[in-house]
Simulated assay, not measured.
Amino acid sequence: MDTKVIDTYIDELMTKSTAEIPVWNIEKAKAGKKSGWDYIDGCMILALLEMYDTSGDKKFLDFADYYEDFRISDDGSIDGYKKDEWNIDNINGGKNLFVLYSITKKEKYRKALENLYDQVKNQPRTKEGNFWHKKIYPNQVWLDGLYMGLPFYMEYETTFNDSKNREDIYNQFFNVERIMKDPKTGLYFHGYDSERKMFWADKETGLSRNFWLRSLGWFSMAMLDTLNKASDRGSENWNHLKSMFRDLQTAMLAFQDESGMWYQVPNRQNEGANYLETSGSAIFAYSMMKGFRTKILDDTKFRDAGLKAFNGICDRYLTTEDGKLGLGGICLVAGLGPETSPRRDGSFEYYMSEPIVKDDAKGVGPFILAYNETRIV
């Protein structure tokens, strides 16, 4: 791993990006759209803020502040944000505003936090009490959504609301453990339809058919970040969530490839077109290293496995072409349904069919987060 090369890569991502057209949002670029307010950019800005937190280098803070200030008005309204979509993904970018508000004291950031928290308070729920993934995905829980919404929810409760709704947050995690965890592998299925109506859902369990690496990663980060944002460290609920987090990391070790990475569908390593995937591998590299650093994981095997995963990504997918550094092996997107997208059926073949791209923030953001941990451990 050449740290100077990676540092240069991160610098280029910032210098070549504007608030309207960031070079890392490949999904928007492919759709011919400018960047708005979405979880993809939120992931990238979060990574830059963690770089600032550990390095103190103001260039990371300045870029993050420029990027968010551009799309948030003085009254706290957010360009591109629509609450009535009830899209839990839209909460993710709000995580960055806690840091920016605490440092810059810009009231617009506090007001934007209030706007996003208003969605959290009113987000539709399944009968079990979990947030819907989106309005267009009613009564559905996706692992992705726990990362998008619950760490924000916990940080808001801790920072501004005296942790009054902390129990609700824990219960949403515990519901997922009870419903979506596979007892054989210790992994979690990608999605759950509480009404058992969707074409991808098992009519008895409501679960989708497979494990998807990045969704497992999002769920891992959801637990890690929530544990680190909670004000009741060491409580019964906190320890239960800690056990869930550790159990998932342990389960993932059983599926880690000798390269250090994990496969797109992690339990079906040698089947068909399955491939070693960057974004999910980077998320678990980060989860394991930061989990150890923040004393949630207490065994060095996790730190070592995380570092091995990061180095495996560098060896396989960090390449230079015509003098330009790039990060490959990133699944562009994967989801379940809706009815108008029958190919998104949760099958193994579906997860193999989505585009594999370079330099998309869903891979680059986690890669930077993992890189940041290697600079600390």
Rank of each mutant, 00 (worst) to 15 (best):
T226D: 02
D11H: 11
R316C: 12
F131S: 07
P338D: 11
E373D: 06
F63Q: 04
G36M: 13
W218P: 07
S220D: 12
E177N: 15
Y81C: 07
G328I: 05
G186S: 03
Y350S: 09
I136M: 12
A273L: 15
D74R: 00
E12D: 14
I21M: 10
E204C: 04
L253I: 00
D2I: 01
L297G: 04
P124V: 11
K30Y: 00
T319M: 11
Y109P: 08
W24F: 15
L113M: 09
N311L: 14
K301W: 05
A112E: 03
S341R: 15
D11C: 00
D79W: 14
Q140K: 05
T250I: 10
F284M: 11
V99T: 15
K301G: 03
E20N: 15
F63E: 05
K121H: 03
K164N: 13
I72W: 05
I356D: 03
L327A: 08
M244I: 05
G80D: 09
F310A: 09
K106S: 07
R375V: 03
N165H: 10
Y101Q: 05
I179T: 12
S341V: 15
D193M: 01
N90L: 14
E68G: 02
R125T: 12
D304N: 14
K324C: 08
G191D: 05
M154T: 15
M252R: 11
K59Y: 01
W37D: 04
E12R: 13
E373Q: 15
L61W: 11
T54Y: 11
S73G: 06
K203W: 00
K105W: 02
W132D: 10
F131H: 06
K59C: 06
M261I: 02
A29N: 13
T158W: 06
E354M: 00
G206K: 09
D168S: 15
A29D: 13
H133T: 07
F302A: 09
C43F: 14
E236S: 13
A334R: 05
D65H: 12
D298Q: 08
R125Y: 06
N92R: 12
N90F: 13
W218C: 00
V120L: 08
D360V: 04
W142E: 03
E177R: 13
S347P: 04
M352W: 06
G93R: 00
G312K: 06
T3W: 00
T278C: 07
A334S: 12
L276I: 03
A254R: 14
N122W: 05
S35V: 08
Y66K: 14
T15P: 04
K164F: 01
P342Y: 01
G329A: 10
K95S: 12
